[in-house]
């Protein structure tokens, strides 16, 4: 094929020792004209100029995420308190220690319980609220705002408010129960092992309910009215219409709500830390994995504690691997469900 652009190609280029040469089209034999051929890397940037646009983001991502993550993996194999020179290489000892540590498994179990509780509440209460708010009334926007409000309140502020309300001595919840004739329900909400974790479920759900409601609302608004009308024409009552038409159509929202809840709960820290403290009071019954990692990394009080940063990093790495793997499986499983419905 004749070469007309004047640019070097494989057909018009030949090696002459270490120097690239260019033979003009139509010229046979004779002289070769030396030419500086673009370096392969430079050629890549020339052919794909859009790479320049994403370069800052790639650099930022590498500096702020990839490098710290790789560094965390590296440090988890050492014995290091967090200050001074990095200590001895200990291989997998930190991982071995945490996997045989009751406190780690207790926190992991509590995190799993918290996720399960939030999963159930989001797919019952939040979904129910979304169905109610999907109706068009004069007050719909007001209700939506009220329900979403806790999401925008700082988790720390939320925690402090609830701690004060639940306090058995200065809180308002027990006196209110007393005043409305439900004094028998008064209890140490946060100090009673039987109720402390349930209190955490409630407060965590109170804060994130609005997010699930909004996601489900968005899903509900994508359910075509024609389908619901057709179901009703076919004699389906409200429940059947919801079960067989609306709910299947909510599959994408269900996936998002579930995966988000999974990730948010397993890396939850601030709200639970404020609510039940660095040791998951009482007696570790509310200790979750995020709080455990923070305590091991930076100590559990303002007094002199012995930090175990590399051990805490190993806990973080374990959580990272678990979340990445489990989230992938979750998305895959829920994706199959979506495909089946489609």
């Amino acid at each position: 094929m004749p070469h007309t652009s004047g640019q070097p190609t494989d057909s018009g280029k030949e090696r002459n020792g270490s120097t690239d040469t260019f033979r003009a089209p139509g010229i046979s034999g004779g002289e070769s004209v030396p030419l500086a051929v673009p370096h392969p890397t430079r050629h890549l940037w020339s052919r794909h100029p859009w790479l320049w646009f994403i370069l800052p983001a790639i650099i930022g991502y590498a500096i702020l995420f990839i490098y710290p993550t790789a560094r965390a993996f590296y440090l988890s194999f050492f014995d290091w308190s967090g200050v001074g020179p990095i200590g001895d290489f200990v291989g997998l000892k930190n991982f071995q220690r945490l996997l045989t540590n009751d406190r780690f498994w207790n926190a992991a179990t509590n995190s799993a319980k918290l996720f399960l509780a939030i999963f159930i509440l989001q797919n019952t209460v939040s979904l129910g609220l979304a169905l109610l708010l999907n109706r068009k009334t004069r007050m719909t926007h007001v209700y939506r705002t009220i329900i979403f409000l806790p999401v925008v309140i700082s988790a720390v502020a939320t925690g402090i408010i609830w701690v004060l309300m639940l306090d058995p001595q200065i809180g308002v919840i027990n006196p209110v129960l007393e005043d409305i004739g439900l004094g028998s329900l008064k209890r140490g909400w946060q100090s009673d092992p039987a109720w402390a974790m349930k209190t955490v479920y409630l407060v965590q759900f109170w804060q994130w309910n609005g997010m699930a409601v909004v996601l489900y609302l968005a899903g509900l608004q994508n359910v075509p009215d024609e389908l619901l009308q057709a179901a009703r024409v076919d004699g389906a009552n409200r429940f059947r219409a919801f079960r067989d038409v609306t709910f299947p159509m909510l599959a994408p929202a269900f996936t998002i709500v579930t995966v988000l809840a999974f990730i948010l709960i397993f890396r939850a820290f601030d709200l639970v830390y404020v609510l039940t403290g660095p040791q998951g009071a009482p007696g570790g019954y509310t200790h979750i994995i995020g709080v455990l990692i923070y305590g091991d990394a930076f100590g559990t009080s303002g007094f002199s504690t012995q930090p175990r940063l590399s051990y805490a990093i190993a806990e973080g790495v374990t959580l990272f691997v678990f979340l990445a793997g489990a989230s992938g499986l979750l998305i895959k499983a829920l994706g199959k469900r979506k495909e089946a419905i489609a």
Binding site: D167, Q169, G188, A196, P282
Partner: peptide, 10 residues
């Protein structure tokens, strides 16, 4: 009462 869940500052 409830000392198990009472924080240092409170």
């Amino acid at each position: 009462e409830g000392f198990e869940a009472t924080d240092y500052v409170t």
